[in-house]
């Protein structure tokens, strides 16, 4: 486990590497550079970094203005504050104006832990997924985070990247090629399909290990590209396995669960069960305590998988 770092640390490291080779990158922060790990970039590339203070609405406008005069703007804060605090600015000045701004938000979901519901953004994927022109990425391990950040910056247009705070086991190799719009099958199987993004990939992977011990064949899919979504992989899973479970550290409304259901109901209806936060705000606790209370656990995944197989 020694080589494992949290996705947000990888985000900071990747920006630093990209800063060396691309002098068009401009990083904007709203007074949380320590937490979003953009501090090193700030130290090294002070002329391409600003801290706008605690003013997220202004941060979006500044990022949009910089993009309009030719920079690749990367604005970062906690997901609760962007899109949370400045959705209108993101909608009008980035999405509708279709500008080359990357909204890189850390601290998503219950995984934020002790800070409680105020900071636990469980609605960001829903908010960002519905905006035309936006690509929405939610990588899982550090390698996927790095590749997603690189691809987001290469892509000319608005991208939302949800960057986790919890460490995640490494599933991908350094030389692997990440593509926007693709899902990745971590394990192939034929009885039931488990799909997740971000911190929940680790949990469905562990659940699949247990299920396999009982002779159940499990397909495990990491789905970092929530928009555009890999419809082929979803349809195949719907047709080839007996049902799908979607797990995410997000409300069950509007996130990946909804996105998967939109595909299956349109092309290949099947049972799709949700592991996510119900219609309720979080609270204080360690990430794992909260995951347990709100049902974001491998035990719950296993239970739902068995329900599918019984039906």
């Amino acid at each position: 486990m020694n080589n494992i770092i949290a996705p947000r640390d990888m985000f900071g490291k990747t920006l630093l590497e990209l800063g060396e080779i691309n002098d068009n990158i401009f990083v904007i922060n709203a007074d949380v550079s320590k937490a979003t790990k953009t501090e090193e970039f700030a130290k090294k590339f002070g002329d391409r970094y600003i801290n706008v203070g605690i003013s997220e609405q202004n941060m979006v406008g500044v990022a949009a203005g910089l993009a309009r005069v030719g920079f690749i703007s990367i604005m970062s804060t906690f997901a609760s504050f962007a899109p949370g605090r400045c959705y209108d600015q993101i909608r009008q000045s980035i999405a509708y104006s279709n500008l080359n701004v990357k909204v890189a938000s850390t601290h998503p979901g219950l995984a934020v832990g002790p800070d409680g519901a105020m900071h636990q953004c469980l609605d960001d994927v829903a908010l960002m997924r519905e905006l035309p022109n936006f690509i929405v990425l939610a990588p899982s391990d550090q390698i996927e985070t790095k590749k997603a950040v690189i691809k987001a910056i290469e892509y000319n247009g608005p991208v939302y990247i949800r960057i986790g705070r919890m460490e995640c086991p490494i599933y991908f190799k350094e030389d692997w090629d990440f593509e926007i719009g693709k899902a990745y099958i971590l394990k192939d199987g034929s009885d039931v399909t488990l799909i997740a993004h971000g911190s929940m990939v680790h949990i469905i992977y562990e659940a699949s290990d247990e299920l396999e011990k009982e002779g159940i064949s499990v397909r495990v899919i990491d789905m970092p590209s929530i928009k555009p979504i890999d419809t082929k992989v979803i349809i195949k899973a719907a047709m080839e396995t007996r049902g799908i479970i979607v797990a995410e550290d997000h409300f069950i409304y509007g996130g990946l669960y909804s996105a998967v259901c939109e595909v299956t109901s349109n092309f290949s209806p099947c049972i799709v069960k949700a592991i996510g936060v119900q219609d309720i705000f979080g609270e204080s606790g360690s990430p794992l305590e909260l995951y347990k209370k709100y049902g974001l656990t491998k035990e719950n995944v296993i239970l739902k998988a068995k329900e599918i197989l019984k039906s």
Binding site: F26, I50, Q57, N58, V60, G61, V62, A63, A64, G65, L66, A67, R68, V69, G70, F71, S73, D88, Q89, Q92, S93
Partner: peptide, 14 residues
Amino acid sequence: GHGLSIAVGMALGA
């Protein structure tokens, strides 16, 4: 209430 922030970004970029 959006224009001035965008103008700030552009002026900063210049």
